[in-house]
Every structure is written in C-alpha cells, then in structure tokens.
C-alpha cells in the first residue's frame, strides 16, 4: 500500500477548519445527529465517566454557563462511554444533591463510535474512558477550536465563554484577538501582506500601530 492510499484509508480525526465528522447517537434528549445542530454553534465535549467527582463539578459549571451560551447561539452536547440510563440517573443525582438542572443532552457512546471518530480516547490515559475533550463547531458544522484536558483536570468554563466570544468576534469583524482578550478590549488588525500595505499601515488612522505588523483597533460599539 503506498503512502497516498494509506492516508486515504486511515481514520480521519477532526481538524481545525474542516467539516466536523457527522454522527448519530442516542442521548438523554433522544436520537440526535450532528446535522440537527446546523445553524447553531455547538460545543461537543466528552467526560470520562458519570458519577465521578471532577466530571460532576464540570457538569454543574457547564449548566451554569448554558444560558450565556444559548444567548450566544451555542448549544452544548456532552458525551461519555456510559449508557443513557446512567446519564439519566447521574443528571437526576446532580439535581438532587446540587440543585442544578442539566439542560443539555448527554450522548451515550457505549460502543465508543463517536469518541473514536473525534479522537476522544487517549490510550495513554485510559482505554475505556474518554478524556476531557471539547470541540467548538460553527453553524456551518466546521471545527473551529479543540481543547484537550487530562482526566485529572477540570476545565475552565470562563475560558470556554471567552473562546466563543473570540471566535464570534473574528467571524463578525474579520479580526484576530490577542492573548487574554476579553470583549471590549482592542483586537488585532490582520498584518499587511504587501510592502505597500505595510507602509500604509503605519499611517492608518483609527488604529494603534506599534509597528507595521503589530496593530490593534477598537471594535465599533
């Protein structure tokens, strides 16, 4: 088998800027397909197992940011290698003990089909559990961001909101965002691609130009 054939037949993991792998799966909200989310942003995230402490803290925090995500046109979809019955029992248990309702669907991926498709299983950590993976999929069903955390470390939901704000700002205004950017901060003006544009950049009004390649500006209010 030559290299080209090998590459074509190898399972393809999600790549930034590429269409998200389609799936159909049983969830706590019925049978869902990726295409059901078309037109919305989607955060598809995996957790290692139901009824475990770090995952419970994560679910509580995801539930807390769900209204803010919905306001931004973002849906959440959880996944673990557990059954629908386990998911239902766990979300009821969270409601009972922590007074938090889990408003988003949770996928029962017992055969690891979706976890494998999305590269959520890290054999170096566990062969039977998904790691803490998170995929941001845009309304056109293109993978826009991926975050991977190990089993031991709960995710930061504030960073997830920040990431969504940054991606949506990029799409709306055609800009990039600097490190630790927050809504209201200045954004990065894409660097010029020609020497003429570089010369023009240093004279351009309305931007904070440190040098030809490094310029920021405010977004319209």
């Amino acid at each position: 088998m030559d290299a080209v054939t090998q590459s074509a037949s190898a399972p393809s993991l999600p790549r930034l800027g590429m269409p998200a792998p389609p799936f159909q799966a049983e969830t706590t909200h019925g049978t869902l397909r990726l295409e059901d989310f078309k037109g919305s942003w989607l955060i598809l995230f995996s957790h290692p197992a139901d009824f475990t402490p770090v995952c419970t803290t994560e679910f509580i925090e995801f539930a807390k940011i769900a209204p803010e995500l919905r306001h931004r046109g973002v849906e959440l979809l959880g996944l673990s290698i557990d059954s629908t019955y386990s998911h239902i029992a766990w979300v009821r248990n969270i409601e009972q003990h922590f007074k938090v309702t889990i408003p988003f669907p949770v996928m029962a991926d017992l055969n690891k089909e979706v976890a494998t498709l999305y590269g959520m299983i890290m054999p170096g950590e566990s062969k039977t559990e998904a790691s803490r993976c998170l995929f941001v999929i845009d309304p056109n069903q293109v993978v826009r961001a991926m975050i991977y955390y190990p089993l031991t470390t709960g995710r930061n939901t504030d960073e997830i909101l920040r990431l969504i704000d940054a991606l949506q700002t990029t799409d709306k205004h055609g800009v990039a965002t600097p490190a630790n950017w927050r809504p209201g901060d200045q954004v990065i003006v894409p660097p010029p691609r020609t020497v003429e544009a570089a010369a023009e950049r240093t004279e351009m009004p309305g931007i904070t130009c440190t040098d030809w390649y490094f310029a920021k500006r405010d977004l319209p209010k």
Binding site: G30, L32, R33, E35, D36, F37, E75, P105
Partner: peptide
C-alpha cells in the same frame, strides 16, 4: 424549544 430537539423529533 431548541432547534435541534425539534429537528430530531420531527425526523422521528
């Protein structure tokens, strides 16, 4: 309702 729930239920 969220659009994904309507779509999936209508499909069924």
């Amino acid at each position: 309702l969220p659009l994904y729930r309507v779509r999936s239920t209508m499909r069924e």
